[in-house]
Computed example of a mutant assay.
Amino acid sequence: MRMKATLDRIPGGMMVVPLLIAATINTIAPNLLRIGNFTEALFVNGASTLIALFLFCAGAQINLRNVGVSLGKGATLLTVKWIVGAGVGLLAYAVAGTQGLFLGLAPIAIIAAMTNSNGGLYVALVGQYGKSDDKAAYSILALNDGPFLTMIALSIFGAMGFVDGLFSITSFISVLLPIVIGMVIGNLDSEMEAFFTKGSDMLIPFFAFALGMNIDFQAILKGGLSGVLLGVATVLLTGTAGYLVFKMFKWNPVVGASEGSTAGNAVATPAVIAAASPAFATNVDLATVQVAASVVTTAILLPLFIGFLVKRLERKGKKAETDFL
C-alpha cells in the first residue's frame, strides 16, 4: 500500500489529509482519542509542541546571512493581511444595513477573521512548498494572533479607543525563541543543521492531525452560509493579495498565499472586543459563530487553493519550491 505516493499526489496531502481525518473524528466521536496519556498528548494536544519543534528544525536551516529575508517576508505578509482585512472591514462598516450587517456578516467578524491567520496551517503549507526563511517568517506572523491587530483597525476607524494589554511581548518572544535557538545551533555546526533538517518534514502530518482534532465541522452549520462566505473571502482576498505581493517581490508566491486563513483563537476576538467596548455587544454572538465557520472553511479551502496555484505555476513551467529563490 503506497500511502506516501498517494498523499504526494494530493495538493498539500501530507498536511490536509491528516487534518481532515482528525476533524472528521473530532466531529463524529470527539472523545475517541481523548483518553489521556501518550495518545491524547500526541494526537489531540500535541499541536503546539510539534509546531515548536518544527520551527526549531526550520531555524537550524537558516543561514545568519538570510535572517533579514525572513523578517522582510514576515513583515510583508503581516502588513498585507492586515490591510486587506481592515479594508474589507471598513467597507462593511460603511455600507452596513440597519442591523449593522453586511451581506449577513458582522463587520467585526470580517476584521477578526481576515486579520488573523492560522499559524499551524501556514507552517504546514510552507513546510511543503517553501524554504527555511519562509518558515522562519512565522516568528513575525505570530503578531496577528488574537485581537491585537483587530483592535488597531477599529482604533484607526475611530470606532473605539486603543486598549492596552491585548498583546504581550512575552508571547512574541515565546514564538521566536525556538527559531533563534535552532538557528544558533545550525550555524555553529553544519552536521547539526543536517541532522535537524531531516526531522522537519516528518513533523507535518503529526501536527496537522492535532490541529484537526480541534476542528468541528458543526461550526459551519452554526455559522451558516454567511460564515462560509467569510471563510471563502478570507482565502481568496487575503490569499490572493499575499500571492500577488510575493510575486511582485520575486519571492515564492505560493508562500504569500499560505497566509489566507483564519486562526482558531480568532473565535474569541469578538467577545474580547465587546468586553472592551459595549458598542459591539449587539452582534457578538453572531460574529463569534461566523468566525468559527471561517476557521473551519479556511482550513479546508486554503490547501485546495494552494494546490490550484501550484498546478497553475507548473503549467507555466515553474516549480513552487525552486523557481523563486
Score class of each variant (00 low, 15 high):
G242K: 13
K318F: 08
L33N: 02
T39F: 03
L64I: 11
L225S: 13
D8W: 11
A219S: 14
T297M: 06
A52C: 10
G307A: 14
D133G: 00
I306G: 05
F167Q: 14
G239K: 07
A47P: 00
G72Y: 02
M202H: 14
G100V: 12
M3T: 14
A86D: 04
L77N: 13
P18Q: 14
G264K: 10
I108G: 10
F206M: 15
S277A: 13
L121H: 07
P11G: 13
G119K: 06
Y243L: 07
R315D: 05
N63V: 08
G120P: 03
W251N: 03
L32A: 11
A137L: 08
M160Q: 09
Y138D: 03
T115W: 04
D323F: 07
L103K: 12
A96W: 05
L105Y: 00
D145A: 12
F56G: 06
L77V: 10
M183D: 09
I62R: 06
V284L: 05
L143I: 15
L149Y: 03
F308Y: 14
R315V: 03
I215T: 14
A153D: 02
K135E: 07
Q128P: 00
I152N: 01
P11R: 15
M14N: 15
K135L: 13
V17E: 08
F280V: 03
L105E: 05
G165D: 02
L33Y: 03
M213K: 15
L141C: 07
S294R: 02
L125Y: 06
M183A: 14
I173C: 13
M3K: 14
L302N: 08
G119V: 06
R65D: 06
T115P: 02
L125K: 07
